[in-house]
Nucleic acid binder design. Structure first.
Ligand SMILES: [Mn+2]
Ligand SMILES: [Mn+2]
Ligand SMILES: [Mn+2]
Ligand SMILES: [Mn+2]
Lengths: 218, 218
DNA sequence: AAAAAATGCCCAGCCACACCGAGGAAAATT
DNA sequence: AATTTTCCTCGGTGTGGCTGGGCATTTTTT
């Protein structure tokens, strides 16, 4: 059984590797992501390599083994299934669930997750629009595009959010954006790439390029 | 935040104190309940006393402080609420839930437990018939009587089980007993106090005095 | 009251986990 | 080749939890 901390490391490494498939996952990036020091990371990497959960060539970054990848995906799966439960069943807001899921994801019980999955009717995306890995580790690559990449006249449905730290979802609420709304790009201001959007054919919203780079549409 | 182990100790001490209100909770009883050694218990008792979660007079046993009691009851509450969830919502058998609840009880989120409580419609007893402490720590004393204490001719409804370790509930299933069945004592064999019961006015079951001492009826 | 038995404390130590600063080695950049 | 950046190594800290063996205390027996 991996410890909570080990699972958190594996998950973080998986996500960093995923985010930029080319680059190798470096000690400092992991340290930054987990707000700890490089020395602590090196330490943990040695232990995880010892347990064969990753390959660690010094100065060369790190790569999950199949088993390490399996554990990382399992943790992500649990995290996201719990998030769905919290939002759909317990009425949490989508910006309140992360912390709690961060704890629930460490509960060890395959049967529990199987039953929860069934109870939720086998969801494939979490409340933030992120895909829920299947039990066998398969991840449905969402067909999302960055909102910032759309051209004037393009339409789409808001499907996922990149930055899920609390302030951002709150900002979205405030400007009247939520997952599932229909969007059409009315204008793209050339000098700063900010976007003028029609929302649900009703309202108009202006967002910065920065925001556009944190939203996905289908 | 108390650690998992600390919470388990507090819970165990609370239950031992509850079980026999007169006697003091001794080091060895705690050690036995947690399958660890007396020396380890002494160690933990010192630490819990340090944190003011219990009073510890050496050679004199141990007593929870109000704060320690609060934490113990909170843990019991969480444990039992999760058990209700597992059985009622996820379709677990009542003899499968204990292990998982033993982990879930350590998740720290008052909001979560509040929402879960509401979601379950404020249950007051868990699937084993044990009372769920209220948020303020109030415990409804169940009006149960020991099945073994009934007289010939008495009737009741099976309401709770004392020994919830796996084999016992499985035995109950096998002989056709479950929480909620109607019972009538047909006969009480005087030489070994075994009981002949009518179940739901249909079947007849013979149980030992030992079993009778592990079942509660209302 | 004394002796014997049971109980429980104390000590010293062990191990796992997680973290860190400082300094020097390696790699990337110029 | 020199400089800057990255990151590994080393030694060390603190916490949490567990243990065996010896001794102290309490309880029971006589
Ligand atoms: Mn976590
Ligand atoms: Mn999420
Ligand atoms: Mn527990
Ligand atoms: Mn129970």
């Amino acid at each position: 059984m991996p410890s909570h901390t080990e699972e958190n490391y594996l998950k973080t490494i998986y996500k960093l590797a995923e985010a930029e498939p080319g680059q190798d996952v470096s000690t400092n990036r992991i340290a930054a992501a987990l707000t700890t020091r490089a020395a602590s990371v090196t330490d943990m990497l040695r232990r995880l390599a010892e347990k064969e959960l990753l390959r660690y060539e010094k100065y060369r970054g790190v790569q999950l083994t199949p088993e390490g990848r399996r554990l990382a995906l399992l943790t992500v799966r649990k995290h996201r299934l719990w998030e769905v439960f919290l939002v759909q069943q317990l009425g949490f807001n989508w910006d309140e669930v992360h912390e709690v899921a961060e704890e629930l994801e460490h509960v060890q019980s395959p049967l529990l997750m199987q039953r929860l999955d069934e109870f939720l009717d086998f969801p494939t995306f979490d409340p933030h629009g992120d895909p829920i890995p299947a039990e066998d580790g398969a991840v449905r690559r969402p067909t999302h595009r960055l909102l910032a990449d759309l051209e004037v006249g393009d339409r789409g449905t808001l499907a996922a959010v990149k930055d899920t730290s609390a302030p951002f979802p709150q900002y979205l609420d405030k400007v009247g954006l939520a997952l599932g709304v229909q969007l059409k790009v009315l204008d793209k201001v050339s000098f700063d790439n900010s976007l003028e959007l029609r929302v649900n054919r009703e309202r108009t919203v202006l967002i910065s390029a920065e925001v556009g780079r944190n939203l996905f549409v289908t």
